[in-house]
Amino acid sequence: MENTSDIRQLNEKIHQASAFVDLLNLELSKVIVGQRYMVERLLIGLLAGGHVLLEGVPGLAKTLSIKSLSSAINAKFSRIQFTPDLLPADVVGTMIYNQQKNEFVVRRGPIFANFILADEINRAPAKVQSALLEAMQERQITIGDTTFKLDDPFLVLATQNPIEQEGTYMLPEAQVDRFMLKVTIGYPTKEEELHIIRQNLNPQATATINPVVQPSDIITARKLVREVYMDEKIERYILDIVFATRNPEDYKLQKLKPLISYGGSPRASISLALAAKAYAFTKRRGYVIPEDVRSICFDVMRHRVGLTYEAEAENVTSENILSEILNAVEVP
């Protein structure tokens, strides 16, 4: 087979550069049982430079996953538990008066880390949420007169509890859109849970995560992810999916029209393309195929499709709508 030289080289380069993905997965599997889907999405978020919103009940190894990931990458990790009385300064940091020096000094908040776990983000009021989300977007923090650039790689993993909605502050649509992925995680299987019990109760279990990747490798990989080849056919396929969420009637999906209040934004198209490239990278490929788009589509789009009251009344979820769309849009 003869290859176009650029693609061939790129493919080989990516094949070599993405070798750490397998190493990372292997290392994480020492402490995390199951939840491969979540770990895979965390990696995609990390490689694509997008943040991840995680929805799942407590006790599903969310904290363990991100903590293990940061250990495996030799990166700094911090966890912020969002509560109703949390203040923006508790997240980003503040100026403190130093009596000895007779001056104000900056005290950095927990956001100054590579991996942030924003636990139960919907429990904090809007001003705290926007402080975090602004930092996520700008990747810098201003305290007093000084602007600090955040560490690179910087990944926020925010969690939302789908139950106990009372007394919470739901993230507005515009802010949810800033998360590249919204991942819904479920319970482990019976076998996996049995393994989890044994692993946790075994007194000899001393599995520790060793750093197998350096943050600089992740930064290099991020650059390579953007170089992954995406054919025009794939770009058009992504556009078809996003446009179908806006104008379903153009794709013979008139029945979806009354169920969708708003469709994906251009940021959705960008995120879907970037996430598909990152997915291809994790599969050690230098080009994107339709499978990559479909695999990541639900996680990129589920929080970007607004449902009408009619849809909610009929228990139609954004996943149902996306399934219909994927089954109607022709694959290139």
């Binding site: 493919n11 054919d231 994107v288």
Partner: peptide, 15 residues
Amino acid sequence: ADLAKFAKMTPSPEE
């Protein structure tokens, strides 16, 4: 076909 369509690959005439 996927390689030819999405990865700019040019298979040989035999292929």
